[in-house]
Design a binder for these strands. Structure first.
Lengths: 143, 143
DNA sequence: GGAAATAAAGATAAAAAAGTCTTTTATTCG
DNA sequence: CGAATAAAAGACTTTTTTATCTTTATTTCC
C-alpha cells in the first residue's frame, strides 16, 4: 500500500512526536531502534522530511529531531503525500492514466470509495494524537 | 496499491474474458495492444497465470489465450492473490510484521476495515462479469 | 513431412527502490 | 579556540521490479 520509505516515515514521526513532546530532542540512532528500521535509511528519509518542514532538527551535541506545534498537527495524509506522492489518493487502481467518470476502468467507482476511505482515515489521524497510547504501550511502532 | 504486473494481469484477463467469450482465442499481440501494455511483459505474466490455471492457452496457428468456465468465475481477488500474494489483504499498513489485536500499530483497526473493503470488492468482482459493458465501450482497459 | 504461427522459456538489460558507507557541516561546551 | 557530537549530504551497493530480446517447443494446415 505504501512504500517502505513511507512506512518508516510514519512510524518515525509518530515516534518522534511521542519522544519529543516534553520539548526534548531525539537522535537518529534512538529513532532507528525505536521503530526497528535501518539507521541510515531512516536518516535519509528524515533529512528529506526535514527539508520539507515536516520534522524539525538540530545539529550538534544535545541536538536531534523533534516536532514543533505545526508539525504535531500534520496528518498522516500529509506524510504519505510528502513521501509517496498522491497516487494512492488519486491514481486508478488498474493503472490507467486517464481513468475518469467519462472513461472509467471496470472498478472505477469501487476504487474511488476505497481511496476516499483511505484519505479520510489518514487525514483524520494527526501525528500528535497517539502519544498517550504509545506511552502506555497500548500501541506499537516496531516488530 | 497493486504492482504493475498485477494491474496488467487484471486488465489482460478482463480483456481475454471479453474477447474469448464466443469460444475464440486471442493472441498476445492483440492483448498487449488491447490493454496498452508491453508485449513481452504481459506475455510473461500470462505464462505464469497459465501455469497456475487462471487462464487457458493453446500454441500454434489459431492458438491464443482464452478463459474456460471456471476461469471466468474466478474473482479479481484470486488474480491479485496469485500475482501479488496476499499482503494487501493481510499485511500491516505500517509494515509491522507482528501487528495484531494484541500488539496493534496505531492504525490497526482502521487498516483492517480498509483491507476488508478491498477484499470484498475484489472478491465480488468476477472476471466474466464485465463483458457486456466492455463490449459497449462503457468501460475501458487502456489509457 | 515441412512451413508457418503461436505460446513457453530463458537470458539479459534497464530502472526504481531499499539499504549502506563515508565525508562534510553545524552546534555545543569545556 | 578545539574537541566532541549530531544531522546533512553525497557516493555507492544491493535487491526488486519492470521491460526486452532470443531461442525453443507445440500446433495447425497444406
Amino acid at each position: 500500500m505504501f512504500s517502505k520509505a513511507c512506512e518508516y516515515a510514519i512510524r518515525a514521526l509518530l515516534f518522534v512526536a511521542q519522544k519529543s513532546k516534553d520539548g526534548s530532542k531525539i537522535g537518529i540512532k534512538e529513532i532507528a531502534k525505536g521503530i526497528d528500521s535501518p539507521e541510515h535509511f531512516i536518516a535519509k528519509i528524515l533529512q528529506d522530511l526535514s527539508r520539507k518542514g515536516m520534522v524539525q532538527s538540530q545539529k550538534g551535541p544535545s541536538g536531534g529531531f523533534y516536532l514543533d506545534q505545526s508539525s504535531l498537527n500534520a496528518s498522516l495524509a500529509d506524510v504519505v503525500r510528502t513521501v509517496d506522492g498522491d497516487s494512492i489518493f488519486s491514481g486508478c487502481g488498474l493503472g490507467l492514466k486517464q481513468c475518469s467518470e467519462a472513461k472509467p476502468c471496470p472498478l472505477h467507482n469501487e476504487f474511488k470509495k476505497i481511496r476516499d476511505d483511505i484519505f479520510n482515515m489518514l487525514q483524520t489521524a494527526k501525528l500528535g494524537e497517539f502519544n498517550g497510547q504509545l506511552e502506555k504501550s497500548k500501541l506499537f511502532l516496531k516488530r
